[in-house]
Write a protein that binds this DNA or RNA. Structure first.
Lengths: 348, 348
DNA sequence: TCTTGTTTCCAAAGCGCTTTGGATATCTCC
DNA sequence: GGAGATATCCAAAGCGCTTTGGAAACAAGA
């Protein structure tokens, strides 16, 4: 019951009649110790339930063994859901790699800065994970100036080099828009996410580029940026469907399945049918509870697992810490366009 | 740039020509140091940006200064949203109190147990925060047997004594049901949360008790347990509204506003009106994005801020750690029933 | 036998903080 | 002026781990 308290390195080494050095090295896989001794040490450690004290290890090694994840400042409905999935997978991967995840709250820039400073100064975290950056996110230069390693899930306009993992939002929405153009749609609406975030800008750029390539120019009324929620999709789609014919969209491109649900509602309330009258594509973050496959009709989607990204971000962060000399990682994942039944040729 | 590394207690004390002891005591508010010295020390600490090393402090003091929050095993849509609010407020409060929050992943009992053991053995967290317990939650006795202090947001059937903060779910739903009875409703439906969780059981008990007090017995068809999502509310309400008259409900009681949204949809799709034809009450967790006040019509609700609960849980956890000898805290918050326009007398 | 190298292990010095057990100076009261 | 109380400060011993700089034992080549 109490043994885990008293069973420290010294006690274990005395028990084994070895020095603390040897025991430590045996457990941490150093080559200077014979395999025989190592096995003996490991067996004893297991037997007595020895677990090194995290605090002592941290003090000695100068690293905290924890990653900080910045809790997003604005939180809204299903946008939250995506973050939760991301966070959950970060925690899972971190746990597998022997790291802890602590949350840094971000409310307002001043307090946010104070949080970072505190974390850095007292060495509470070894690296930070940021997600969903703004177009020009001040947090990057702040962390840089504080000498805090960080990795960004997403990208910004910043010229400086930083560690990042992002999906190819532009390419995804380019592909999706091109598909709709190829199907003969000439009025394609974009229901986007928050336009102050970079991913939304990238998506819009991809959308515009594909339209331009097809010789089309989207009317302003066909682009709506806002929250990743059903109601936003519903009101915006409702508004657009009330437009006169040349501008009235025959296809919708959504930044999330939640928005697509709203679009579907608006479409059906007009007596129209998704897949024939109206084509619909959404970005699919592969959340367990909102699936493109079980959408009615099954939803054509650009898909990329946000959970996989969370895991990878942790992997990269840990790799950065272990090999500080290697260049900062920078990955951009391609996004699959999966065609299902929610898209079809433009109605005549 | 680098100063935060070198500015440790010793450097600061040399700078001030004081001993480390005095500096430490001055900063930590011990009475043995004169106010004059304390002011001087604090000023210097501020000036040089001194922040004590968390690792060193943890090692010396034997506490990690972090609380673990157990990430719930099952995660679904808006249930998640509630947890996120809870978590966010935990982080906020913990930050204010100088504590960190780390997340413990909970997937399956075995791995969960391993997570706890690891956390306990290596003293990574000082206490755990559990939320949304099952009716008989095995985690309690597990943490107890590991000697890990914990506090539960919610309650279970367990006889043992443990630290807990809960809202009066039973009382809330008793009140709400009684109001509906007083308004003359005789068929009142309950759209509940996940029945394996204790809060759902408490709510159902309150509902049943109020019905019984009014001389009513709910037909089985009028009770539905499930997820805290709109679609669940919609399908269950739709099913119930299709029943024959004596059983067909004239009032609905929901466990979340999200469910109420679904009920509203089902009600309106039958051409009925909330507030006159059908009365509706929901539990309101006071989330920023889903508000009872802006519901259409404004929603009569049993309300209790889940965020406030998160903050308080952290306060209690810290208090437990600071005063281990005081009896375990156990708070049950009353829940307000706020009457708005979604309830009215039963139609004749 | 002496050197050199290899393997295996160890003593001891930190890491930066808290805390114990005094030491020194200052006040108070007879 | 001395005894006792009080206020103020300090030296040093940990906390439990990692890591440096050898040492001891043994084998092999000169």
């Amino acid at each position: 019951m109490e043994e885990f308290n008293s069973m420290n390195l010294r006690a274990l080494s005395e028990l084994l009649k070895l020095s603390q050095t040897t025991v430590s090295r045996a457990l941490n896989g150093f080559p200077e110790v014979s395999e025989e001794t190592r096995a003996r040490v490991k067996a004893a450690a297991e037997l007595h339930g020895y677990r090194p004290s995290a605090a002592a290890r941290r003090l000695a090694i100068g690293q905290s063994g924890t990653l900080g994840v910045v809790f997003p400042r604005e939180r809204n409905m299903l946008g939250d859901l995506i973050f939760t999935e991301f966070l959950g997978c970060c925690v899972e991967q971190a746990s597998d790699m022997g790291y802890d995840i602590t949350l840094a709250m971000a409310r307002g820039t001043q307090t946010e800065e104070a949080v970072y400073r505190r974390a850095v100064r007292s060495a509470r975290v070894d690296a930070m994970i940021l997600s969903s950056p703004l177009i020009e996110d001040p947090r990057l230069s702040l962390l840089r100036s504080l000498n805090m390693p960080f990795i960004l899930h997403g990208r910004t306009r910043a010229a400086e080099h930083y560690a990042t993992l992002d999906i190819d939002n532009r390419g995804a929405f380019f592909q999706a828009t091109r598909l709709l153009c190829d199907l003969g749609h000439t009025s394609i609406a974009l229901i986007n996410g928050d336009p102050s975030h970079n991913y939304a800008v990238d998506r819009e750029n991809g959308y515009r580029a594909a339209l331009k390539a097809a010789g089309l120019t989207p009317p302003l009324s066909n682009i709506a940026g806002g929250m990743m929620v059903e109601s936003h999709g519903e009101t915006e789609a409702g508004r657009m469907l009330a437009l006169a014919l040349p501008e009235r969209p025959t296809a919708f491109l959504c930044s999330s399945i939640a928005q697509a649900l709203g679009v579907k509602r608006a479409v059906e309330s007009k007596g129209l049918k998704i897949g024939s009258d109206i084509s619909l594509i959404a970005h699919d973050d592969r959340l367990a509870d909102i699936r493109a496959e079980t959408f009615d009709p099954p939803l054509t989607a650009t898909q990329s697992s946000i959970g996989a990204a969370g895991k990878r971000v942790v992997e990269l962060a840990v790799a950065m810490l272990r090999e500080p000399s290697t260049p900062l990682p920078s990955e951009v994942w391609p996004v699959d366009l999966v065609v299902r039944q929610s898209t079809g040729p433009a109605p005549k």
